[in-house]
């Protein structure tokens, strides 16, 4: 829709964006012409999808292989009681369609793996709202090789971690070279999670995604934001590009073909 201007309905719908110099009609048009891939339509994905759709990000892809369970509804706010048993991608698409007819949704009812990771390509930004280390390392590696920025968020009980992995900055492996061995860190089905926690963290991820699409502000590049819901504190930990990073360092891999996204998700002979 390049070259088209905003219609009257859009001028009204996005008026609170358009009135700001930092967005304006140009920025809003940019959002409408941009695309975001949200990986995971669960606790983090729900607010991300909600706010990207409301903001008028014109094309949203959603990847999730799960169906809605009743125990999801304590935090996954785009799914409703009547959606229990339905694929999350379908429920997510219905939510977006009801909220904003300007937005096209591409649903991928699948688990992201090495064989289909190329569906990341072509998107302007990727939002990692997944729930496991293999997917997170796969997203980092694939998006970095494709030159696509990632808004990363992860949660644990009452804590959140958010950072932005931009092609011009350090990647996730610069901070955490490899994943902990499976079983080291318990998952949220075992430990539980405060329902509103992924809301806070997902909203920060959506903020970062919108900023990246607008090319506005200072993204969380080279900074890991820690949120502690119990203490209600935010800490920022800086991190730098690691020249020895196997994905973005001086001697990077050129494909993910030989990376095993299991166990510690290590790369190369030096992996342990």
């Amino acid at each position: 829709m390049s070259g088209l201007s905003l219609d009257a309905t859009q001028l009204d719908r996005y008026s609170r964006h358009i009135i700001m110099d930092e967005v304006g009609p140009e920025g809003q048009k940019r959002l409408l012409e941009s695309s975001a891939l949200v990986i995971g339509a669960g606790g983090l994905g729900a607010p991300v999808i909600q706010y990207l759709a409301a903001a008028g990000v014109g094309h949203i892809g959603v990847v999730d292989d799960d169906v809605v369970e009743r125990s999801n509804l304590q935090r996954q706010v785009i799914h409703g009681d009547a959606d229990v048993g339905r694929p999350k991608v379908d429920s997510a698409k219905d939510f977006v369609t009801t909220l904003n007819p300007d937005v096209d949704v591409d649903t991928h009812q699948t688990r992201l793996g090495r064989s289909n990771a190329d569906l990341i390509e072509g998107y302007d930004v990727v939002v990692d709202a997944s729930d496991n280390f293999p997917t997170r390392y796969l997203v980092n590696d694939t998006a970095r090789l494709a030159g696509i920025p990632v808004s990363h968020g992860a949660i644990y009980k009452f804590e959140g971690q958010v950072t932005t992995l931009h092609p011009d900055g350090p990647c996730y492996r610069c901070l955490f070279r490899e994943a902990p061995e499976p079983g080291t860190v318990p998952d949220c089905a075992t430990t539980g999670v405060l329902g509103v926690l992924p809301g806070t963290v997902g909203c920060i991820q959506a903020t970062e995604a919108v900023k990246l699409l607008l090319d506005a502000g200072d993204p969380l590049v080279g900074r890991m934001l820690f949120y502690d819901a119990m203490d209600m504190t935010f800490d920022t930990v800086p991190y730098a590009e690691d020249p020895d990073c196997p994905v973005c360092g001086d001697d990077p891999i050129d494909s993910i073909e030989d990376v095993e996204y299991a166990d510690s998700c290590g790369i190369g002979a030096g992996a342990d």
Partner: peptide
């Protein structure tokens, strides 16, 4: 000491 977390659902 800070480790990564992976939750998101």
């Amino acid at each position: 000491l800070f480790p990564p977390v992976s939750g998101g659902r």
